[in-house]
Design a protein around this nucleic acid. Sequence first.
RNA 1: GGGGGGAUAGCGAAGUGGCUAAACGCGGCUGACUGUAACUCAGUUCCUAACGGUUCGACAGUUCGACUCUGUCUCCCCCCA
Length: 401
Amino acid sequence: MTKYKNNNQFSFEITKRIPGQLGRAGIIHTPHGDIKTPAFITVGTKGEVRFVSMEDMLAIEAQAMLSNGYHLRNTSYEMAEKGGLSSWSGWDGPTISDSGGFQVMSLGSGFGKVVSMKRENEVMNTKQKDRFAKVSEEGVQFHDPITNQEDFIGPEESMQIQCRIGADIHMAYDELTSLADDYDYNVEALARTERWAVRSIDEHKIHCDELGYHQSLYGVLQGGRWEDLRRSTAAKFAKMDFDGYGLGGAFLKESLGDILKWCCEELPENKPRHLLGLSHPDDILIGTQMGADTFDCVAPTREARHGKIYTKHGNINILKFADSRELLDENCDCPTCKAGWTRGALRALLKSSDQDERRKYFNLASIHNLRFIIRLTQEIRAAILNDTFEEYKEEFLKDYY
RNA sequence: GGGGGGAUAGCGAAGUGGCUAAACGCGGCUGACUGUAACUCAGUUCCUAACGGUUCGACAGUUCGACUCUGUCUCCCCCCA
């Protein structure tokens, strides 16, 4: 197996804490550079952020990229040959790979559903026979309906894939439950995720020994919305040999803060925590306050593609701004706004019948939304360092909502 | 002048006696979207808040009943002179 870049060890330092809170600003050191936290990690599922170039990534001050083990299961061999995700993709900064645990839910019980945070009562799990991911103790049987490819991926396979991908930070294999799953199912799934965590560590160690150096591994916490499950699993994971922790789950918005608090109170303070899959501004603010250091999410890019644009005074739907000569957001420092693109012009690109024009819109809108969220995390960090987190949070939320 | 085809909601287009306020597509309007099966998805789109009302170029018929059949008219397209 190819050797990956490994000129310095993974480590985490806390620069400053939010007084009286679990939150902090810090720096994660990785073989491909530092991540100043809190930080938003852009999602490049298949090794690139949709409609966003590596030059754009630098322009919006993205610090790191998260890719997906399941979606890269085939490509991972080629990545290994080329020296890993970083050299394969052209993204020279820190990288994270997800285990594919999310796909256990998104292609399984939650297939065809929105991963909603506010409609618990409407959510029903997808029927067993309609799922493309079926869970057992050993792992998950995936069926790709487009290629008809069958994959069995358990913790061992996920670690093998991730070690081939060679990101700086790997995620243990987990099962994300859906909001429709009850307490009993969560107990069962959590116990399985805990066993998978042990198997992930063991398998991961084998590959690191073969490589001759350590690749970082985060344990991923589940447990749904139940305090006893969250605390007990966090306490167990705290004693395990992980380099950091992923905070996972399908969260109801109003319970996010509590759940993070339960987890982070049990976790060791000196290891970084990544809140998986969330990035709306209120989520990042509460997440940071409750102890999360990094975030990743598809929302900024997906919502951009769907016409939702982030502004300091809330979100707008670009379709409602035909002929508007306003910028997307006043005083925005993103490349799109700095280049003078107006809402009307961008709307015209989105509505164009020309594919290239639509793609241009996707690019311009995506980098605007990404920059908005990245800037938010930068401002939060600055506020923590200045001891003004509470004031910043209050003011931001007042403008935004 | 002769022959043929056609006129359906903002547009395009089904429907050829009752189950049709009228399929479907586009456009419009709402709303979703959080570790990307997502350039996607859901709802709505004659008038009315609703009860209900008025429709399928126009008028006149046939029929218990017409967007669907008949006649006349208006307009559009094609072919032959």
